[in-house]
Design a protein around this nucleic acid. Sequence first.
DNA 1: TGACATAATGATAGCGCTGTCATTTATTAT
DNA 2: ATAATAAATGACAGCGCTATCATTATGTCA
Lengths: 335, 335
Amino acid sequence: MSNIRAVAKKAGVSVATVSRALQKPDVVSEKTRKKVQDAAKEVGYRPNMMAKVFRSKKTHSILALVPDMSNPFFARVISGIQKAAKARGFNVILGNTLGNKETERDFARLLQTSQTDGIIQLSARYPLETPENDIGSPLPIVNCCECVVDDSMPTVQLDNQEAARALVNYLVELGHKRIGVVAGPPDSPLTAGRMAGYKAALEENGLTFDASLVTEGDYSLEAGEESAATLLSVNDAPTAIFCFNDEMAYGAMRGLKEKGLSVPGEVSVAGFDDLPFSKYMEPALTSVRQPSAEFGTVAVDMLFELMSGSLAGKRHRQLPFELAIRASTGPAKQI
Amino acid sequence: MSNIRAVAKKAGVSVATVSRALQKPDVVSEKTRKKVQDAAKEVGYRPNMMAKVFRSKKTHSILALVPDMSNPFFARVISGIQKAAKARGFNVILGNTLGNKETERDFARLLQTSQTDGIIQLSARYPLETPENDIGSPLPIVNCCECVVDDSMPTVQLDNQEAARALVNYLVELGHKRIGVVAGPPDSPLTAGRMAGYKAALEENGLTFDASLVTEGDYSLEAGEESAATLLSVNDAPTAIFCFNDEMAYGAMRGLKEKGLSVPGEVSVAGFDDLPFSKYMEPALTSVRQPSAEFGTVAVDMLFELMSGSLAGKRHRQLPFELAIRASTGPAKQI
DNA sequence: TGACATAATGATAGCGCTGTCATTTATTAT
DNA sequence: ATAATAAATGACAGCGCTATCATTATGTCA
């Protein structure tokens, strides 16, 4: 593999000039630039990026930490991240943690061993919280989509509470008084935010919170199906079910139909995320739209500001949600 | 940031010994190994991976080239790739090409500039085919899921032709004589393979091929919807529609319902991929199951064999498909 | 015990590149 | 034309690590 020295020799200049001609073309004369470029082409020069990275201490790559790649919502966010990163000449390393704490830390170590310049994490847990990992200085990490407890971490998020509140308010307007919830994992701040919105909406409409109407799911299709069954077995079963993501809503719809209940005739179902599929479900799913790809873009923007030290006061950005009202929700069945 | 020299000093040994103690623990005495490990911990040593990579010329990363991350099928394959790579201590760099030729080449260049050890590509086009990129020696690339024309490239694939044939045969058994197709992009070998299977099945059942029953789609939900409309407008419209992926099948089902046609009562619909969603559609979608995660695993296995030079004779591996018969297909409507 | 093989360690070059500083060349002002 | 300034280039150290080879310590056997 030809190296920078071969080019220098061919072009009759020093290696430093070659490096300059290729990296910062504006500081060399047009004549030598041309000379170097020709020589590079002639000897088939391919810069060894690893040497460059090693020397310059910039990897030009960011790590995307995600609990589950096959989750379509995350896939879309990552797609946004990748596009934005590429536009800046950065690569994206994929860290699929499967929710595993150890794996998260393994990946986070990439940052500490200078294999990546920054991290965008799509989960709640701060991956570097062990004392062993505490190296004092703030690391370039941006949290995306999740609520985080640590206020100092830069975040891009939805106002989950407000979104949940809006959706539940809409269900109440339709006449629903018993609204079931298929929530996310109980320890997640995101779950907490949406639950808070749910409760707020109940309260402002004079409805009492009933813990038996709340189930927990892991965001999978199966979880939705099981939760629907659970909710139906409750005394005075709900006439509407609010799932904390669309996949669980799909599962719930299936569960309801298996019990012979029509959606939305007998039970309304709503989701969260508004995946592209949701429009195509039968009936089409009511959901809260999250600007998935934009999450990625904004997160990348923030990470770059953070890395360049120019992250202005606003460490927390909020993207707007939107209610996507479709056919899976309808007037409450009169009892 | 403490480096290897600091550790050496602390442990009272040479840097070479530190390197050995940490990289190949079995060649140093137990005593010094312990000494070095303690010293490393004490000074908070974090090896600079980039220096290591630079020196050893091994990046321990592979690139996954994929046309569209948000395609759930690809997302699952990548998930498999990532898991398998991680098990071998390798990272996965994500290359979302959006089908763009230039972008593909940009990413492929990572290999040539020693930023990655190998590539797994999930698209058909050979990314390094320009003369500029031709550096003679065979590069460590494995093709996954796609059919490739170039016989020398190692591949993991489904027998797409056989799978399509099996599915169409099944539709014929149900009594369908006019079977529409929503195919993939016309230039894709994968499309060609499945089309060949479709035609073969028609032929062996004494049915004549009718080009007006074939539409092309880009694997999107929308394409399926539009294609369904197109197929319905044909003279003597099909009683069954075979889509080359599940997403288009979802779209087709929606399109049919919009025209007031019942599935499978009036028109049967089948897909390809068998995404987890398909079981949850209403009606549940008949499809060809592809072992998505296993694709990733096997591709990684092959890539490692290729990189270590131990790839045995079999450069083409085939994974088994399975028909997932569900409610979206039924007996042909009698005319 | 001495001769030899083997295991463990040390000394050091250098991977390919970039950043710094010194030097040369071109440009402008006087 | 000369001095002062700016632009362009060259020389070279060294990033942190690993690979190689030389050296020393340890073990084995007659």
